[in-house]
Amino acid sequence: MNFIFRKFRNIYKRLENGFQVTVFPEKFSLYPKLQYLHHNLSYSQEGEDMILSRFFENKENGFYVDVGAHHPQRFSNTYLFYMRGWRGINIDAMPGSMESFNKIRVCDINLEFPISDGHQTLTYYEFNEPALNGFCRDISMKRNGSGNYRIISEKKMKTYTLSEILDNYLPNGQNIDFLTIDVEGLDLQVLKSNNWHKYRPHIVLLEDLNRFPISQIHKSDIASFMEKQNYHFYAKSIHTLFFLNKN
């Protein structure tokens, strides 16, 4: 029965892709299979989805939570899995950010909420490069005027905790395979806002802008916090740390 279901699902996805290419050629394209047969297609900024793909290579129909999702495809740690049939929750604070998610990631739960470690009102710094948007004043001031980057607006926003978002939007009985966080300097605060007794993703990956080498990972406040939650350091890209649930 599962084999038949997967077969029909694959047929449906091919028909869906064909329809999109035919009706919206400026937005969608098909890749010749032979030309890209030996390529690994990555959407992440530093290949994080390739590390996750290797870890979850035999898993179907998984579930992710993406905090600081930014864009449905660009720099996305989850889009590759969405294309494979996974589903999840995408969260971003940028006003209007979920419009593109609701068009491209229609099967996901797409939420526009600022996340921090409590209910507070913070200043959101919006850049001409949306990937740099965030609440951390120090980081935003350093980036403002660096190269071509500049702050184009500042907005006051009320923040929510990750645990209350999951309480309200995570489907009943749904386990989280991986949680990915990239919120430009507030990553530790987002971690602290989760209920680690109730919500324990198998893998947690998030940005640490301090860029500690592996030999000094113990100096990372993020690594120390995750160790206390019974997660151990598992892998690393340039900025991203991966933690595996010890349980």
Rank of each mutant, 00 (worst) to 15 (best):
M1C: 02
M1Y: 06
M1S: 07
F5W: 08
F5N: 12
K7C: 01
K7T: 14
K7Q: 03
R9Q: 15
N10T: 03
N10I: 00
K13V: 03
N17A: 13
N17S: 14
V23E: 02
F24S: 12
K27T: 12
F28C: 04
S29F: 10
L34I: 03
H38S: 15
H38D: 15
H39W: 06
N40W: 01
L41M: 12
S42W: 00
S44H: 08
E46W: 12
G47V: 13
E48G: 13
D49S: 09
M50Q: 14
I51N: 01
L52P: 02
F55Y: 14
K59I: 15
K59P: 10
K59V: 14
E60I: 13
Y64W: 11
D66V: 03
D66F: 04
G68A: 02
A69H: 08
P72W: 03
Q73E: 11
R74L: 14
F75E: 00
T78S: 13
F81K: 09
Y82I: 02
M83L: 15
M83W: 00
G85F: 06
W86K: 03
I89W: 04
N90R: 13
N90T: 08
D92E: 11
M94E: 08
M94F: 12
M94R: 15
G96C: 06
F101R: 03
N102Q: 08
N102F: 01
I104R: 13
C107P: 00
I109E: 08
N110L: 05
N110Q: 12
P114S: 13
P114E: 12
I115W: 03
Q120I: 02
T121K: 15
Y125M: 10
F127Q: 09
F127L: 13
E129P: 00
P130D: 06
G134M: 08
F135W: 03
R137V: 06
I139E: 07
I139N: 01
S140Q: 07
M141E: 15
R143D: 01
N144M: 09
N148P: 00
N148T: 14
Y149E: 14
R150M: 08
R150V: 02
E154V: 12
E154L: 14
T159L: 05
L162Q: 11
L162A: 11
S163E: 05
E164M: 07
E164R: 11
I165K: 05
I165N: 04
D167S: 10
D167A: 04
D167C: 05
Y169R: 03
L170F: 06
N172H: 12
G173Y: 10
Q174M: 15
L179I: 13
T180G: 06
I181D: 05
I181C: 10
D182R: 02
D182S: 04
V183S: 09
Q189M: 09
V190S: 07
K192N: 09
N194L: 11
N194V: 08
K198N: 01
R200H: 09
I203L: 12
L209V: 08
L209A: 12
L209T: 04
N210C: 06
N210M: 05
R211I: 06
F212C: 05
P213G: 04
S215L: 00
I217G: 06
I217A: 10
I217Q: 14
S220P: 02
I222R: 10
A223E: 07
M226T: 10
M226G: 07
M226A: 11
K228T: 10
Q229S: 04
H232T: 11
Y234K: 09
A235M: 01
K236W: 04
T240H: 04
F243Y: 06
F243P: 09
K246Y: 02
K246A: 12
N247Q: 11
